[in-house]
Every structure is written in structure tokens, then in C-alpha cells.
């Protein structure tokens, strides 16, 4: 028996919009600690890791560890039927091949049940160890989205370089080149507008912009994004979900030809 009641149902709607284009099918894992997911894109180049902690739900009941295979496109279709202010409850029974999403309007005058078929998914779980990163950049998520979108109109890849001067996003394509440098800026009115660069040593890595742009679909989940860089490791692009957890995207760097 599983029953997870999320008052801020819009969070789940946003999570699905953030990940459904990157991953088609995924197993949602439910345990006493929370509701989570780890899945790779079909080419196994990028990975999404989601955590919604149990404490973030108004009511959280998960009698035993459960894995529910869902088609994210279908799940998104169902969640789009929930209002932005709706309370969403995820319900499942042991051994059942369906999951139910219940949507309640804030005034409780409309209650909807959507039952979705589950699927068997052979997913490969990767062990992701804690790592030291050479540089961690925290910046407004909207600025990161803007940069990725702008650069994708010029080139296919972005070189992200962190030095003590700042963080540089560069691309080149048939029509020319582009460089965008952000300097650390903590003298802002609102903390979420700050750009903070923590650098242990300079680092420069190349990534496919197609994936970076896909990650920015999570922009509405958080005002800030944290980009952790290390040579020898996939980049981590993390959007914190207030009070609840995170969506993290991992992307393997391209090797210079």
C-alpha cells in the first residue's frame, strides 16, 4: 500500500515537464525515505536523478519498498489534467499493475481519479559516488537557460570554463563563435540572483547543448541552478526543489577530437 499526498501538486507537474523529453520510461522507487527516480536517456549519455523526500509530503505512507514502472509521456498527460493549485495524491496497491493519481481542487469541490497502467522496465541503476568537484557554479536558473538557448543557435556544443576570472560559456558554429562570461556577483538584492563560483582549480569541459537545453526544462522548479564540474566526471546540473529534494542531471563530457 502506497499513498503519497502532495499539497503543492504543481511540483510534480513541473518535475514531469522537466524530465519527460529526456527519458521515455522510468521506474519510480518508493521507500520510507522518499519517492525517487534514476533513469538514463536512450543513448546512455545523460541521466536524471529525482528525489522527493517523505517529509515534503503532507501524508506519506509506503509500507514496503516499491518500484513502479511508468511511461513518462503518459504520466505527463495525466498530470496535465491536474490544476496548478490541486493537491495530488499518488496511490498504489501491492502487486497492482496500475497507479492512481488523485487530484483535489483547493476548495475540495472537485475530485478526480486517473488510473494509469504500469509497465515492466528493465532499468540499469548506476552507482554515483560522492565526488569532489574542481568547480561549482551557482547561478540564476533563468540565466543558465538563456545562455544555453542563445548558444544553441550558434553551435552544437558548449565549452564551460571556470577560472578565477569567472565562468565562460563558449560555442562555435558555421556562422561564427560566441563567448559569454559571468563573473562572481554576490552584491545582489536577492540571494537567488547571485552568481557564486567556488573553484578549487580551473576546469574546462565540452558538452552537447542539446542535452543542456533539455535540462533547462527544469528551470521553473528552482530560481537557482548548481553546476558541478570536474574533468574525468560527468557534469551535474542540479535544481533544488524547495523543502523536498532535487532534480539532478548528469551529462558525460565530450572528448576533444
Amino acid at each position: 500500500m502506497l499513498e503519497l499526498r502532495l499539497v503543492q501538486g504543481s511540483l510534480l507537474k513541473k518535475v514531469l515537464e522537466a524530465i519527460k523529453d529526456l527519458v521515455n520510461d522510468a521506474n519510480f522507487d518508493c521507500s520510507s525515505s522518499g519517492f525517487s527516480l534514476q533513469a538514463m536517456d536512450s543513448s546512455h549519455v545523460a541521466l536524471v536523478a529525482l528525489l522527493l523526500r517523505a517529509e515534503g509530503f503532507e501524508h506519506y505512507r509506503c509500507d514496503r519498498n516499491t518500484s513502479m514502472g511508468m511511461n513518462l509521456g503518459n504520466m505527463s498527460k495525466m498530470l496535465k489534467c491536474a490544476g496548478n493549485d490541486d493537491i495530488i495524491t499518488i496511490k498504489g496497491d501491492d502487486g497492482s499493475d496500475t497507479v492512481t493519481f488523485m487530484f483535489e481542487s483547493p476548495t475540495q469541490d472537485k475530485i478526480a481519479d486517473f488510473e494509469m497502467k504500469l509497465m515492466d522496465i528493465d532499468s540499469e541503476h548506476l552507482g554515483i559516488p560522492e565526488a569532489e568537484y574542481q568547480a561549482i557554479v551557482t547561478m540564476p536558473s533563468s540565466e543558465f537557460a538563456r545562455i544555453c538557448k542563445d548558444l544553441a543557435s550558434i553551435g552544437d556544443t558548449v565549452v564551460i570554463s571556470v577560472t578565477k576570472e569567472g565562468v565562460k560559456f563558449s560555442t562555435r558554429g558555421d556562422i561564427g563563435t560566441a563567448n559569454i562570461v559571468l563573473r562572481q556577483n554576490t552584491t545582489v538584492d536577492k540571494p537567488e540572483d547571485a552568481t557564486v563560483i567556488e573553484m578549487n582549480e580551473p576546469v574546462s569541459l565540452t558538452f552537447a547543448l542539446r542535452y543542456m537545453n533539455s535540462f533547462t526544462k527544469a528551470t521553473s522548479l528552482s530560481n537557482t541552478v548548481k553546476i558541478s564540474l570536474s574533468s574525468e566526471l560527468p557534469v551535474v546540473v542540479e535544481y533544488k526543489i524547495a523543502e523536498m529534494g532535487y532534480v539532478r542531471f548528469y551529462l558525460a563530457p565530450k572528448i576533444e577530437e
Binding site: V45, H125, L126, G127, I128, P234, A252, P253, E256, E257
Partner: peptide
């Protein structure tokens, strides 16, 4: 695009 490694080059399967 053969200069794009997969994640399995960095992380091990559990």
C-alpha cells in the same frame, strides 16, 4: 559523434 562517451565510462552499474 563518436567523441561522446556514455555514462557507463564514469559510473558503474549497480
Amino acid at each position: 559523434a563518436n567523441n561522446q562517451p556514455k555514462l557507463s565510462a564514469f559510473f558503474t552499474l549497480k
